[in-house]
C-alpha cells in the first residue's frame, strides 16, 4: 500500500492504495466519483477523461499513485456554485448526448480543447475530440455543442 494525498474536485483526500490501482478506480470506488466511467482497456475511448492539474488525461491510463500531490477535476467538479459549466449546458442545449456514457469524458475533453483554443474551427474541434469515442450521436451534435460553447466564451471563462 502507498499513501497518496490529492485534491479531487476541490476536496482534499488521502488514502492508502495499492500501487496497481488506476486513478479511475480510485475515483469511482474510493471516492464514489462514479460520474467518471470506464469504457475500454486500451485508452482509446476517452470515457474516463478527467483533468489532472488542469489538463485532460485518461484516468484509466494513470495510476492513482501517480496523482499523489496533484489536483484532479472530474465531471462532478465542473459545475460551480450550482451553475453548469457552459460546455455542460451546450451539450444539453444541442442534444449532444444520447446514452450519455461517453458524455463525462467528452465534456471534460471539450473543456480542455476550449482551454487550449477558445475559437476552434470545426476541423480543430473534430481533431481535438479524436481521443473520445461516442457510439450514439454520430458526433454531429457534439461538434455543434462545442461550437456553441465556444461562442458563449467557454474557453475564456474556464
Amino acid at each position: 500500500m502507498t499513501r497518496i494525498s490529492l485534491k479531487v474536485d476541490g476536496a482534499s483526500c488521502s488514502d492508502d492504495v495499492e500501487p496497481r490501482m488506476l486513478l479511475v478506480h480510485y475515483l469511482r470506488e474510493r471516492l464514489g466519483k462514479t460520474g467518471t466511467v470506464i469504457g475500454c482497456d486500451t485508452s482509446n475511448c476517452g470515457a474516463c477523461t478527467v483533468h489532472l492539474d488542469g489538463k485532460s488525461v485518461k484516468s484509466c491510463n494513470v495510476l492513482a499513485v501517480q496523482a499523489d500531490g496533484h489536483e484532479v477535476t472530474t465531471i462532478e467538479g465542473l459545475a460551480q456554485d450550482g451553475e453548469l459549466h457552459p460546455v455542460q449546458k451546450a451539450f444539453h442545449d444541442c442534444h449532444a448526448l444520447q446514452c450519455g456514457f461517453c458524455t463525462p469524458g467528452m465534456i471534460m475533453q471539450s473543456v480542455d480543447l476550449l482551454n487550449e483554443n477558445a475559437n476552434p474551427s470545426e476541423e480543430e474541434i473534430r481533431l481535438g475530440l479524436e481521443g473520445n469515442l461516442c457510439r450514439c450521436t454520430g458526433y454531429h451534435n457534439i461538434v455543434k455543442a462545442v461550437q456553441a460553447a465556444a461562442s458563449e466564451g467557454a474557453g475564456a471563462s474556464a
Binding site: 485508452s43 476517452g46 477523461t49 489532472l52 489538463k55 485532460s56 488525461v57 485518461k58 491510463n61 494513470v62 475533453q109 480542455d112 480543447l113 487550449e116 481535438g128 479524436e130 481521443g131 473520445n132
Partner: peptide
C-alpha cells in the same frame, strides 16, 4: 501523435 489526452501524459 495519438490524441490530446495521451499527448498530455
Amino acid at each position: 501523435l495519438a490524441d490530446p489526452q495521451v499527448r498530455h501524459r
